[in-house]
Nucleic acid binder design. Structure first.
Lengths: 228, 228
DNA sequence: CATTAATGTCATAAATCTGTAACACTTAAT
DNA sequence: ATTAAGTGTTACAGATTTATGACATTAATG
């Protein structure tokens, strides 16, 4: 791996957490705590990818993004935007400006790393990202934000969708409740692990017959069976 | 759970309430009512996490934090700061000094417990243990939390799985019952060593023919044979 | 605003796992 | 062969863990 990743964020805790996780995933994290120094570092280091907070003092993330995309040296560098929930409106703007993905706070560091890997993968070869996952007669489409069972669309809520998506992406592997809380609800969620049970239940309810895909591993967590 | 949590606070009421709540959540609370004894206990007990009041007589919480982060033995222990509202200014300082989170007084014990869980979750690094171990026709997969004998999945309980995993990870080396109690059940477990026998028996039962892999070393303990 | 939907929490029921004690069997040493 | 310590077996009550239903609260929508 060994690729340089530049993190531009003004919150030291965010930088710390992200940098730590990147490092342990084999990346080389670079950091900047404001837009100006971020731009400078991007130009001098030419990182493989930039994680950019939308909300920055002085120069906003959008402007940084715009500037980077204007200069030929940095235009090709993929950018992942970090946005607070309320800023979700800006998502479209960000994407139109050239951001390659966005992750909303609070986010799980693990998920961010996965996104980074995904974007890097995509930016290299032809698009082959797993935008659609199919398991048996269960089909999940990230782009459309839809889940189908036998070509019939299931009306899942946002949380249910994300929960199912994570289980499907890691099919076969058991996910502990803690892990799910971390990855579905975000890294600073302070909710009870029992809540996961409830959402699993609601998922199963909507899945109907297909509910059997979700296995309970007593004393450990949940997973979606590997076999079709 | 079973993790040791050290509470450093000079108000007995706070200590009592927090300790009680931690205990009922399955943690093992340790306490100190001043910075000096807090430091001492942290070094001797090496708790899984420290709840540290910012406002302490004599040595301030910040200094305790700084000291802990300086010593390699304790540097990795996550710290949650307790701050009065007016001290919020110091939040940044605390975080920069290495605190992992902060909770401002007055706080709800429940929230503190959730925060503790969240921080512990976060600080648990990526699993570096060997994901799959194979011995003869016995295959253990951590990620799936599955054990196969000749490609057939064994329905093990959580405890059985953990016991087998530890034996397999240390194949060849005899594990005493005490050692197994410690590593499978966790320290502080007040369980009879004979209980290990029972679980070994259940394991063997499920292993069927492969049960012969688990050797009894009379007067010492158990082990899984080195040879394939 | 009013209404609906989504979400998190809780209490309780149901499932299942676990620790223990009592007893049977094995082994090693006398 | 006898004995004593160590280990295997068995059954079961108590403890945990999970599923479920109902509710309170928050967010989204018109």
């Amino acid at each position: 791996m060994n690729a340089k990743i530049l993190i531009i964020d003004d919150e030291p805790d965010v930088i710390d957490i992200v940098a730590m996780n990147l490092k342990s995933s084999g990346f080389v994290p670079l950091t900047a705590d404001n837009g100006q120094s971020g731009l400078t570092k991007a130009r001098s280091e030419l990182p493989a990818l930039i994680v950019l907070d939308l909300m920055l003092p002085q120069i906003s993330g959008l402007e940084v993004c715009k500037a980077l995309k204007k200069e030929s040296a940095t235009a090709q560098i993929p950018i992942i935007m970090l946005t607070a929930k309320s800023e979700e409106v800006d998502r479209v703007v960000g994407l139109e400006l050239g951001a390659d993905d966005y992750v909303s706070k609070p986010f799980s560091p693990r998920e961010l790393v996965l996104r980074i890997k995904s974007v890097l993968r995509r930016s290299k070869g032809p698009t082959s990202a797993a935008e659609r996952i199919k398991i048996g007669n269960l089909l999940l489409d990230h782009a459309r934000h839809e889940v189908c069972v036998n070509d019939e669309i299931l009306p899942l809520t946002a949380t249910e969708f994300k929960l199912l998506a994570i289980l499907m992406e890691r099919r076969g592997r058991v996910q502990s409740r803690d892990r799910l809380l971390n990855d579905v609800w975000g890294y600073e969620s302070v909710i009870d692990t029992r809540t996961v049970d409830t959402h699993i239940r609601r998922l199963r309810e909507k899945l109907g017959v297909t509910a059997s895909y979700i296995e309970t591993i007593r004393g450990v967590g949940y997973r979606i069976s590997e076999a079709v």
